[in-house]
């Protein structure tokens, strides 16, 4: 039941109107606190980024298999798990950010969401919306198939890979020993 560690998909690059990376996107911009009562993951996708200027229609733009490319300190703020799960609900395959808020990172890893850390959002020449990209979660190699460019990030740790293959943290523990 092992999943592939090489993921191919369309890039959605979260930049502003001036094509600059949007840093410090907090959990209220990702999944606003007015929706915190929602516990069914299938309901969550429609609200993803609906409080982020320029991306309020994200749920309509996103396609299954998309890979998000993000700025620094992504997911700062509260500990809400929905800020990760809303992307899973839309079929987002992986996140590549310059950096993550500490709690967000913990939540994403626990939920089995593949996350890589890389500065690729800085270069328009390297990546634009809807480019076809391929990421190797183990080696950290990010290939832009549309632009024929490569970037080497740090691969995911054994811990992340273990949890990713299991689905989430709780599933992982079921198969120990």
């Amino acid at each position: 039941m092992k999943k592939s560690v090489i993921l191919k998909g369309r890039a959605l690059v979260i930049r502003n109107e001036k094509t600059e990376p949007i840093d410090d996107i907090d959990t209220d911009m990702i999944f606003h606190n007015k929706y915190l009562h929602i516990t069914d993951i299938n309901e969550m996708g429609q609200y993803a980024f609906d409080n982020l200027d320029g991306w309020k229609d994200f749920a309509k733009k996103a396609k299954i298999g998309d890979i998000l490319v993000l700025g620094a300190n992504f997911g700062s703020g509260s500990s809400r798990q929905q800020a990760v799960d809303c992307f899973s609900a839309l079929g987002v395959q992986a996140l590549i950010a310059k950096s993550y808020g500490a709690i967000y990172k913990r939540n994403a890893i626990n939920a089995g969401m593949p996350i890589l850390q890389a500065d690729v959002i800085d270069e328009i020449k390297f990546i634009e919306n809807k480019d076809e990209i391929e990421v190797n979660l183990e080696t950290g190699l990010i290939k832009n198939l549309t632009k024929n460019k490569e970037h080497k990030a740090k691969g995911m740790s054994n811990v992340q890979i273990d949890i990713y293959h299991s689905g989430n943290l709780f599933e992982y523990a079921k198969n120990l020993k």
Partner: peptide
């Protein structure tokens, strides 16, 4: 840690940490 992480720690005897 939060309640999910602690429940996992009790079950698995380990946790992950950066």
């Amino acid at each position: 840690m939060g309640d999910q992480d602690i429940a996992f720690g009790m079950k698995a005897g380990k946790t992950w940490f950066e």
